Simulated scan of single mutants.
Amino acid sequence: MELPESYYQLLEKIQQVDFVLVDLTLYLDTHPDDLEAVKQFNQLAYESKQLKAQFESQFGPLLQFGGSFSSYPWNWKDAPWPWQV
């Protein structure tokens, strides 16, 4: 299945933002009073949610176990999964 370039670009942007969120989480575990880091974390958490909603509206579900809704008919069986590309 050939996917549009926008699929890969959006998926990469999601991965970049989520990587920074992981890094900030580790930092904030040891620096919980860093207000600027908390603000940055919250801004990126919002951006991550927006990017994932955009991805799902264009390409289908991204997260399982209730993290993403399914359209009708059930579309979890549709490939490719993000980790397959």
Score class of each variant (00 low, 15 high):
E5R: 05
L44S: 06
P82W: 01
V85H: 02
K39N: 14
V17H: 05
L51D: 06
L26A: 14
Q58P: 03
Q43M: 10
D23R: 12
A53H: 08
L51A: 06
P32Y: 06
W76R: 08
V22G: 03
D33A: 11
P32I: 06
S48M: 06
S70V: 08
L28Y: 03
P32W: 05
Y27T: 02
N42C: 03
I14A: 02
L51H: 04
H31W: 00
E47A: 12
M1C: 09
W76V: 01
Q43G: 03
E36T: 10
S48L: 06
W76E: 12
L63E: 12
E5D: 14
W83M: 01
L35V: 13
Q43R: 14
L28G: 03
T25S: 13
S68Q: 05
D23V: 09
F19R: 13
L62V: 02
L11G: 03
F69A: 14
E56G: 01
Q40N: 12
Q43T: 12
V38L: 13
F41L: 09
D78E: 15
I14D: 02
P61C: 03
L24W: 02
A53P: 00
L10Y: 02
A45T: 09
T30Y: 12
W74Q: 10
L11P: 05
L28R: 04
Y72H: 08
V17D: 04
P80R: 06
K77V: 08
L44K: 14
K13Q: 12
Q64A: 10
Q16Y: 07
S71L: 13
L35G: 10
F19Q: 14
Y8H: 13
Y7W: 15
L28C: 01
Q16N: 13
W76G: 15
V17Y: 05
F19K: 15
V38S: 11
